[in-house]
């Protein structure tokens, strides 16, 4: 397959809190014969502001991000279903009727969530990753699932890992309770929903919980640590990209 030019939008959480996800994304994209560009100066897509109702603030962050990426070439790839949904769905919505409308549509049209990009655009599912003794279960994060239709892509990607077994997760398509600032504004409710998810994760027999959104995963990781669980949490791209020691 011919080499393809892509631009990586890392997302704020990957940038600041989970850089290993970004590193693995670069590795995996290169394995999938992509030339990875990384526009300097990227920050946050504005989703946190948008979701609590601060749409003016979100619009400003959207314009900033659009200016940055509209100048680049190639497919914009995002290792997060919810940030990708923000760019693909909500940017054109909140900028409709403004002088950024065309730019928003242009960038939205170039943007892909990572697992969909790998499976559908690159037809790449095997990355020669090895994980002996790994029993993996997959949580399907809501925005990727319901806004973008990410259903079996992550499962398909992790199933290619040698030595790993993928086991079903009861209620895999139910929300984990994160909900962005909801997790801080209504922590008791968020944690109650999380409890059911974590019970299901532990009942699945998996020792690694995998997903496609680091935001939900950090919430679940924090909950698993708090209950002294042995289950580890990884973004799927870390599983297939491995850690080559870079």
């Amino acid at each position: 397959m011919a080499t393809q030019k892509v631009q990586l939008m890392a997302t704020c959480l990957v940038d600041a809190v989970a850089p290993e996800v970004g590193k693995a994304t670069v590795r995996v994209l290169e394995l999938a014969r992509c030339e990875v560009g990384y526009p300097e100066g990227q920050t946050c897509c504005g989703q946190p502001a948008f979701n609590v109702g601060f749409v003016d603030e979100a619009r400003e962050m959207a314009r900033y991000t659009l200016d940055l990426f509209d100048e680049t070439e190639g497919t914009i790839v995002i290792p997060s279903g919810s940030c990708a949904a923000m760019v693909i769905e909500h940017y054109p919505e909140i900028l409709e009727g403004t002088d950024y409308e065309d730019k928003a549509k242009r960038v939205a049209g170039r943007t892909r969530e990572l697992s969909q990009f790998l499976v559908h655009d690159r037809g790449a599912t095997g990355f020669d990753a090895v994980c002996d003794g790994c029993t993996i279960t997959v949580h399907r994060s809501c925005h990727g699932l319901r806004n973008l239709g990410v259903r079996g892509e992550v499962d398909e990607l992790v199933r290619s890992i040698a030595g790993a077994e993928v086991v079903p997760l009861e209620g895999a398509e139910e929300c984990c309770g994160f909900g962005g600032l909801f997790s801080v504004e209504m922590p008791d409710v968020s944690a109650a929903i999380m409890r059911q998810k974590l019970d299901n994760v532990e009942d699945s027999g998996a020792n690694i919980l995998v997903g496609g959104d680091i935001s939900c995963l950090l919430h679940l990781e924090g909950g698993l640590r708090r209950r002294n669980s042995k289950v580890a949490v990884r973004h799927f791209v870390e599983m297939i990209g491995g850690d080559d020691g870079a």
């Binding site: 890392a10 850089p19 922590p187 944690a191 950090l218 919430h219 990781e221 909950g223």
Partner: peptide
């Protein structure tokens, strides 16, 4: 943090 641990930001950011 009433219900979960919080992962510390990274020393070296991805950027």
């Amino acid at each position: 943090t009433r219900f979960r641990d919080l992962r510390r930001p990274a020393k070296q950011s991805f950027s």
